[in-house]
């Protein structure tokens, strides 16, 4: 019997009480409201539990890490059981074969890579999507079909040909290997294509008559109208790059160029598992995407195109 069970029982009890004793005014409606809370709360608990576990683990002393699922009982709280030793160790100077490296180096690397890839992908995917949505040209439908086809192939399958290609191009151990292959995503082009359908073609034509060049139309007229999609796409692609593990692990060798994910993973290897430090680093790694999400949140609210055309 733990807290989760108790919560379940509480809501369940309230639901049955309200539902089967309909002497209360509007008893059933209220019962259904409670049922909804019950379902939502349990789903939320399910989703948040690992996160809660992560936070707890990051601040537990390595000695007691495995002793408790979440936090130790309040009676045993002390600097022996709960402290910042994981975080401290994480930021200590680390001597590697290639010299001293600080943890923030990996954060900087990841941040640089994620933002650069996002910008590059955003640019090319939206341009591609624009062309596919608003220009008539021969072979367009075939191209779209082909594009969708590529999305069906698992990325893992392409890893070894990609490795071969990167090797041939002398891009091993460079960030080109991480940025260029994802520069134009089929998913992104498709997403933007759908978004651009909602932009009336007469806007494009009006701008063309007004004297705007094709790139200017894309930049000044069309892109500002799909801001919600742009925000969502930025978030998705930032997350994808920030969380990427396989590609940086395969293509980057120099320790000082590693990304956060790969560097963190080194704390848990075959011979030495420092789970406390690993989890403290993971907790830190969650912060930038979270900030990004909350700062972009208001952009997701659509309705920008309203007022463009008739009424």
């Amino acid at each position: 019997m733990n807290n989760t069970h108790l919560t379940f029982f509480f809501f369940g009890f309230v639901f049955f009480f309200l539902y089967f004793f309909p002497f209360m005014p509007r008893g059933k409606q209220i019962a259904l409201v409670y049922l909804r809370y019950l379902v939502l709360t349990s789903i939320a608990a399910l989703i948040l539990a690992p996160f809660f576990w992560l936070v707890c683990s990051a601040f537990k002393d390595p000695e007691v890490l495995m002793a408790y699922t979440f936090l130790p009982p309040v009676s045993e709280w002390s600097s022996q059981t709960l402290n910042f030793s994981n975080l401290k160790k994480l930021f200590e100077k680390e001597e590697t074969l290639e010299g001293a490296i600080y943890f923030w180096q990996y954060i900087v690397n990841s941040f640089f890579l994620a933002s650069t890839s996002t910008m590059v992908t955003l640019f090319f995917s939206s341009l591609g999507g624009y062309a596919l949505a608003k220009y008539e040209f021969r072979g367009r439908s075939f191209l779209i079909l082909f594009m969708l086809g590529t999305m069906m192939i698992p990325a893992m399958l392409l890893l070894s040909p990609l490795y071969h290609l990167i090797h041939k191009m002398n891009w091993m151990d460079t960030y080109w290997a991480l940025i260029v292959p994802g520069a134009c995503s089929a998913f992104g082009m498709f997403l933007f294509r759908q978004a651009f359908f909602s932009v009336p073609s007469t806007l494009v034509e009006a701008a063309r008559i007004d004297g705007c060049g094709e790139f200017g139309i894309y930049l000044n007229i069309v892109m500002p109208l799909v801001r919600p999609i742009t925000a969502a796409f930025c978030l998705i692609s930032f997350l994808g790059s920030w969380n990427a593990f396989i590609a940086p692990d395969v293509f980057i060798q120099t320790q000082s160029k590693l990304t956060l994910t790969v560097a963190l993973n080194q704390y848990v290897d075959l011979y030495d598992q420092q789970y406390g430090i690993f989890l403290a680093g993971t907790l830190l790694a969650i912060i930038p995407p979270a900030i990004l999400f909350f700062s972009l949140e208001k952009e997701f609210v659509g309705g920008l195109t309203s007022g463009a055309i008739k009424g």
Binding site: E205, D210, I221, L225, L304, I309, K310
Partner: peptide, 19 residues
């Protein structure tokens, strides 16, 4: 090209730039 024809057009749906 349209921009060099020295014309202006008014569309049925007005096509005002919403932003």
């Amino acid at each position: 090209s349209p921009k060099d024809r020295d014309i202006a057009m008014v569309f049925q749906n007005y096509a005002l730039y919403p932003h």
